[in-house]
Design a protein around this nucleic acid. Structure first.
Lengths: 203, 203, 203, 203
DNA sequence: AATGAATGAGAATTCATTCAT
DNA sequence: CATGAATGAATTCTCATTCAT
């Protein structure tokens, strides 16, 4: 593999991520991708066997990367609290400044063909497990009020990933601030400490 | 417009909602829609001027409906707490068992042409405002710990809407249970009442 | 099915037969076919689901037709001799003036996809069987010198079908003459009646 | 040209013959050919200027070889009968176990570009002439019943070449047996010696 | 209102061929 | 000689849309 070869493939992937994020996988054409990557349409097929493969490689790389970074970075932290805070921050960061790939991974699952779909789902579950473990630990060690670990992990992941849907660069808040507010909300809830509980009668 | 005419149009809309939800707007073809609606391809154009129009009508109806229902139902409740709980429940319900149209509204924004996009965004903002108002009230009257109202409204909406991404019919939890857990998490947070705070040092 | 609809489909089939014969299936493009049939490229897909289907329909029709005609016409003849003569004449005629479809059926078997291939082979075998029956009868009733019925049927069929490979309209011989010479060769062989046999020593 | 060069070229030709026979010229890709020959796609162009040239060289070699072998081997035989028998045997053998090249020569004529086509046709005619000469001799010396020499030569050639269309290795008959049956059919015909002729009235 | 044949622009993909290394 | 990335034209096929009936 020549240097040009490798980087050309990387360029195509990078441009595909940008294009897919901008227009969505289905609305993106290989011609447009080729144009952006500075090659002819046919050339893409030197590096990938199909449009679908590009999508899959993009997602696969991203999931691997996310899992790798998350596992590595929380391994050093010694309390569930610190781990959760860090996981939330990383997750949000990944979805805001992170590569377009994260956005795609979130949104284009439906466009994966069955075998590819299965493989990505496996990784997504793996990623989610890391959150589940943190939560289970917090429940056990710090007496967190958790009625269902899986459900909570999902709620947190979706809430944070939702940032992609409204965050714009130059937003009023920095990533750190957003992360801290989300974390604080999750940890402490809305209700002021010491407030009376009388209003929570059943619906 | 004859009775048959009206109901045929409704059938097409209903089937479009199901089809778009199942395959996505771009992956859906008008031929398939026609087939499901029991007409020939060309006939759809007697009711709608384009595929795009179908999408827009679907979203527009849905947003109006969601706003209408939400406003109406919380108007009767007298505390921010009850209102938030109800709003969360309604939002989740809408996204799980609610009409396919809701799902579409969440996912197909990107496929709206510019003018249509603008109009739907206006409604989405309106819907979000209802949440913001509840939160602002809670902050004022019940001393909820909220550093930014808009950010919180978004977080809640995304977290709840995220349910669509994993919920499957026959899930271990009922919608009521999910709603209650989400609500409780938001209200009380993870941390046990009375637990010491020493671990929440800044990042 | 409107009159135009039916005839348009027939036109496409007819033009496909001419085109495929002229250039071969693989070398023929749907664009060219559309041009000849006087429609736009996409219109062909109203009538056929794929290029492959056109090929199959062509072959299927032809085989059905050949079998039908052959069975019907020899049914009236009362001796194996008359039947063989007629079968040979029909087979040759079919391959010379007969529709281009016969040529295609002969030459494009390899380009059928597996399921289609299987179905055409069944018909081809059926056609061949008619020859085998005639030969078997001749062997039984007229004491024809046949060491293997199947092998002979194939030899005759191939020899006659081979005409397509060299016959040009306005050839020195008419179809009747060619047919009669082939028939006579098969019946009587090269060797003069009464000639001595001494030269047929083993190879 | 180095030794490796020469043999590499031979390998490509050999593999091309196999590939073309298997899939047909048009359905074969140079990439596949390269793969089978153990080189990269581009390398083929060091040995041949185009795909078309490969086809032509293959056919040209084959025709030369067939003509050469046929002429040489029948030159030693002293009667038309022995020559015809031998020519038939060789022709059949060539088409069954003979090199894949023979098969191609039969089927890919249509895919030759005009100049190449003309050159191969010249050779094919030459090959056919050898048969014609044998037949003419048989007619003259042995009083064979031949109404048209050219027509008969074609009939024989096509009948024998037709074997390729049905023969499978491990067939019930050996090549020798098939050749002998064909020869016998041609020489003696179907009709039993001494049988009455009354049934051969004109069509 | 409904049909369904026809359109025509455009999509993904293939492949013989070129050429710098 | 060999490589393999790149080309670019061509191919099959799709689909929203139109329109005469």
């Amino acid at each position: 593999m020549s240097v040009t070869g490798r980087s050309r493939k990387q360029i195509i992937l990078k441009e595909a991520a940008r294009l897919f994020r901008e227009k969505g996988y289905l609305a993106s054409t290989l011609r447009e991708l080729a144009r952006r990557a500075g090659v002819q349409g046919g050339s893409i097929y030197h590096h990938f066997s199909s449009k679908q493969e590009i999508l899959f490689v993009l997602m696969d790389n991203t999931m691997n990367d996310m899992i790798e970074r998350l596992s590595t970075s929380i391994a050093e932290l010694d309390s569930p609290l610190a781990r959760l805070r860090h996981a939330i921050r990383l997750h949000i960061e990944y979805h805001i400044i992170g590569p377009d790939e994260t956005y795609i991974t979130e949104d284009e699952l439906r466009n994966l063909e069955s075998e590819n779909y299965r493989r990505i789902i496996v990784q997504r579950d793996h990623y989610q497990q890391i959150f589940e473990e943190i939560i289970a630990e917090g429940k056990a060690c710090l007496n967190w009020q958790v009625s269902d670990v899986k459900l909570l992990a999902r709620a947190i992941i979706q809430m944070c990933a939702g940032v992609t849907r409204w965050y714009k660069p130059n937003d009023k808040f920095s990533i750190d601030e957003i992360a801290e507010q989300y974390f604080s909300l999750l940890l402490n809830g809305l209700k002021e400490r010491g407030a009376e509980e009388k209003q929570t009668q059943p619906l």
